[in-house]
Amino acid sequence: MTALATAPETAAPAAGSRSRARRARRATALRSASFWLAAVVVVLVLLAAVAPGLLAPQDPLEISLGESFDAPSAAHVFGTDQSGRDVFSRVVHGAGQSLAIGLGATAIGLVGAIVLGLLGGLGGRLADASVTRVIEVLYAFPGILLALILIAVYGSSALTQMVAVGVATMPGYARMVRGQVLAVKGSLYVESARALGHSPARILTRTILPNAFRPLTVLVTLGVGQAIVWAAALGFLGMGVQPPTAEWGAMLNAGRTYIQQAWWMDFFPGITIVVFTLSLTVLGRHLQRAADSGASR
């Protein structure tokens, strides 16, 4: 019949059906498999950040010129770099600093965004108009451009890298916070609270803020991944942590020079970032779904 499933006016009751149950089971199995896989990845990266020695006993800085540019092998699963350092150890030991930069940048971006967003959402018409304009102007420096300007002004270092990425992520969060605060402020349930005679302070702290910030938790999960990617991009361009420190961005930068002879120097730090950010995305979506269905139960 028709390909566009036109749902019946009342969704069919959930009970009973075999094929539906099977399909639902398969969907949840797939979903929970992806969830657990993502969770394992995130836990491993966190472990690497806290106790890298557990996962990679080799010294990430130990130079062994005789072993430079070794392709991946049993001895060096991710190969070695131009100085014969073990890439796997460096990836594991780099997790700490990369994660710190990502989390720090997200925190900076969020704090700025919350200040801006609350000012816009709660501060009245004039404040809102100004905040909207500020966000709009910041949007005109797309992506890592804002970060590049800050690095041009302050020079490259791990700190600038973190602050620069944080500032670059700010407009996106700020727009979201503002929109959320305005939506909640205009909701029927806030009006109900008003009709009950609650004080503005009580409505703000018990109703507006908790509801406005609820979706932020999911966003932050996704945002940390984005911040790590941006920081790594800056590192890749040579504008972050300087060698020989083990940090994902700096490793990418070093590998860029030797891309035609030692692809593994860029491939493995890169795929680590991909898998990690993808896992954060999957976890974020699970959180979101849990929040949505939690509300609908």
Partner: peptide
């Protein structure tokens, strides 16, 4: 789509370069 959207330029570019050009 989720996977594609998560690919950073610096990694995807390097992989494409190594595979298709080198």
């Amino acid at each position: 789509e989720v996977v594609l959207a998560a690919l950073p330029h610096f990694w995807l570019g390097v992989v494409l370069l190594v595979v298709f050009a080198v």
